[in-house]
Design a protein around this nucleic acid. Sequence first.
DNA 1: CCGAATCCACCCGGATACTG
DNA 2: CAGTATCCGGGTGGATTCGG
Lengths: 140, 140
Amino acid sequence: MDPQSQPARSEYEGACASRGDGDGRAVREVLDRIGDKWSLLVIVTLVDGLLRFTELQRHIPGISQRMLTLTLRQLERDGLVARTVHAEVPPRVEYELTEVGRTLIEPSMALAGWAIENYPRISEARERFDANAPARPPSP
Amino acid sequence: MDPQSQPARSEYEGACASRGDGDGRAVREVLDRIGDKWSLLVIVTLVDGLLRFTELQRHIPGISQRMLTLTLRQLERDGLVARTVHAEVPPRVEYELTEVGRTLIEPSMALAGWAIENYPRISEARERFDANAPARPPSP
DNA sequence: CCGAATCCACCCGGATACTG
DNA sequence: CAGTATCCGGGTGGATTCGG
């Protein structure tokens, strides 16, 4: 019976399938944010207090002004980072994590911790994999 | 003393800066993997057991065969997913999480949980933000 | 059933230069 | 100091087709 009824396993269960509704979308959208090249780095850099634009840039080695600006805008838009403009000259703009932004730190750190802890194994696995299937035989 | 010594705040502290060495790279590479469009979804879908290719595809709504194949290859390469080919006809290939792969579940779930829990707030923040700065003045 | 190959659109992100 | 504007290459991922 129940010919094609989805078994016990729903779309993605556990944390993902509260009601099987638009949860995948939520995960996707959050991942699109913190999964991009700089967002997580910015968040982590803001962990212990506010910083101005240039300070932020100095603390994140490879980032360009453009990318820092864009990243900050997105984070601000999502309500994770607060932007404060001081009406002075020269201008001074400070960024800090919001309440919500701070709650993201814990899971992010957990993931970062996992990454650092398991990177050796992953790297090793890659080498093994590439050693067995390097056969990109364009050669005649 | 310590004229321009970086204060308490290192590059990215806490989990990220074990020794300030190549840890950022580890985080970046892992993020490049699970931060892509499908990897995390695949991992989470494999949480409670092995699945064959087609089942996997059915459980992840929008994914194409191409993307599923590529994602699985990467995960296999990184040693997070194991691939078992049964020499039968028609062919049967099963995928499951490895030991290491399973350790990724916890932090991933934490992040996914955060996403689902905070998505309403984020979504709301976006609307507010877009309401105040929709002024994309393309004025000629 | 599983997957590789090809073609192609899109957008992310880097470099650079210019404003207030 | 804190951005914005423009150009442009490369990677990501979708649609489709072919092969074992």
